[in-house]
Amino acid sequence: MEPREEVLALLAENARYTLEDIARMTDLTAAEAEALIAELEDEGVIAGYQAVVNWRVADRERARAEVELNVTLDRETSYDDIARRIAGFPEVKTLQLVSGNYDFLARVEAGSTREISRFVSERIAPVPEITQTVTHFVMDTYKEQGIQMNGGGDEDDRLSISP
């Protein structure tokens, strides 16, 4: 694997690996790893770093919804134009153009389901190009970013010493 790929794979797995750990796991020195990460950040390849939080365990549960959006396009308005208008709202955590029965899928987060309802009806639905919204409130999360939540995952039942 190329060093760039390797560093990206490591950070995608765990963004908290220290430069020293990254150096130990690759053929890079810590300084080289640091420079490479800076480069990846500058180029926008690494867009940011976030923790995967299980808010339910933190007892700070927030309301979440997956919102399907249907839109109409015209000569002056592209998907990108509409996406920019929607992505600007801080409540919208993820926004993707998708294939299938609807055009965009937005993940929306707020303090309560009421707030989400209000946000969708007052901010999203009124956008002129949006023809329809379908809101799915998230009832529970079992897996997020490849990490199993709420007691998922495997147990380690191995003997402490084996041949």
Partner: peptide, 18 residues
């Protein structure tokens, strides 16, 4: 060594062959 290790709490085992 298995018997010794079984007695220890909070063990990190680097003795596992699987």
């Amino acid at each position: 060594y298995f018997e010794l290790a079984e007695e220890v709490e909070d063990i990190i085992s680097l003795g596992v062959g699987e």
